[in-house]
Write a protein that binds this DNA or RNA. Structure first.
Lengths: 210, 210
DNA sequence: TTCGGATTATGATTTGAGTCATAAAGCAGA
DNA sequence: TCTGCTTTATGACTCAAATCATAATCCGAA
């Protein structure tokens, strides 16, 4: 039973064979490419083969808010596809990427014929909803340090993090942390230092360890 | 095809007949009752028959953050049930409520035997993820007035709102708006007045109309 | 009808994150 | 090795939301 596993990143959203047998295309993007834009009407299902994608918003004065990062085997942008609504954010290739792209009709056909895929999708959406719930409560009310610590702990579970002898290395720049929490870079830098002083984290060679 | 409809509140998550045929219990709660607590491990599926439920967090100094309100025919608290994780927030009866309660094994049995239910669940989760994405971007960066306007517009679609001759009446107290946006009551009161001055909303008899 | 709690309202004051300016350090590419 | 760009760093200053205090209004229950 797929529900017993919580760490969705281990399981591909949809198995590669299944995607290929449904004529999904492999499409390449270079770093910085915009995969879709906020306001676009979805017409395709995307699943990452290689590389990293972020979803983000830009507000009136150009500031960015990062909704999340997505990694190989993960899909992104399905909620509006299911709801028949426009994307609430942009999808941008953070690094060079290769993606499976499947048209909406073929995608709907696929999930109707493969019930276990529905369960993967449910699990994946549940996962993302969980992240958003946790972060929403933090972002709304807490002090910067608290906010960052929550992000760090969460990113250990769900973003790219490697366990080293010093602890988990957080592979996020100060700017990325700022965009994920809604803080400014300077505030992040100062808060990170304060957290180090309190021994909540370590800073080695400018990298954050926890 | 269920995916064509975006407004999930019209459709019961799971049809009542189906719940009853799977021996779901009807359980009553009085206003203020805690249905489950942050940190509890889920063991049941909940669907509202009557009344209103909110999910919320309390931080260290007692301040509340409201994750969302749920109404008849909607379910709540499934993500952690699927993920086998503890609840990230509390569920509290806002008014006297009657709920369908179904044990996890029976619930999993139900959705596996009724594939169309999976699709409803996907749509429902997609819906909630969409709300969270939109609000997250707002809450993180925008000024109070912008934040509140977004909440108001969103609540017209998804919370209890009635269309009257003056416009849509927002049935949220200033405190509830504060808890949903992470602002303080006083700030909400002042921002609401500022929005009225700019003719973005109307205040009639203390109620907000849009 | 009265009473008490919740809600809305308003002013004065504080505070801490944002902003601005500037610079050092690291890093990739020529 | 030099150059230019990104990232990290730090201090000074600003300002708006939070905080604190106080009160009027509304509303349901006794």
């Amino acid at each position: 039973m797929v529900f017993l596993y919580g760490i969705f990143s281990i399981f591909p959203m949809i198995p590669e064979e299944l995607l290929e047998s449904h004529n999904a295309l492999r499409k390449k993007y270079v770093k910085g490419d915009i995969i879709f834009r906020e306001g676009d009407l979805p017409s395709q299902y995307f699943q990452i083969i290689l590389g990293e994608v972020k979803m983000c918003n830009f507000n009136d004065d150009g500031r960015e808010f990062t909704q999340g990062f997505f990694h190989p085997k993960q899909s992104f942008g399905e909620p509006p596809l299911f709801l028949n609504r426009v994307y609430p954010a942009n999808a941008i290739a953070v690094s060079d990427c290769e993606l499976f792209v499947l048209s909406k009709p073929l995608f709907l056909d696929l999930i109707q014929k493969n019930t276990s895929v529905s369960l993967s999708i449910i699990e994946n959406l549940a996962q993302r909803l969980h992240y958003k719930s946790v972060m929403a409560a933090e972002i709304s009310s807490q002090e910067p340090e608290h906010r960052l610590l929550k992000l760090i702990d969460y990113s250990i579970k769900f973003f790219k993090t490697e366990k080293e002898t010093q602890g988990y290395r957080i592979d996020l720049t100060r700017q990325q942390m700022a965009d994920l929490t809604g803080l400014r870079v300077e505030t992040v830098i100062r808060a990170i230092k304060a957290l180090e002083k309190k021994s909540e984290i370590k800073i080695i060679n400018r990298k954050v360890y926890r």
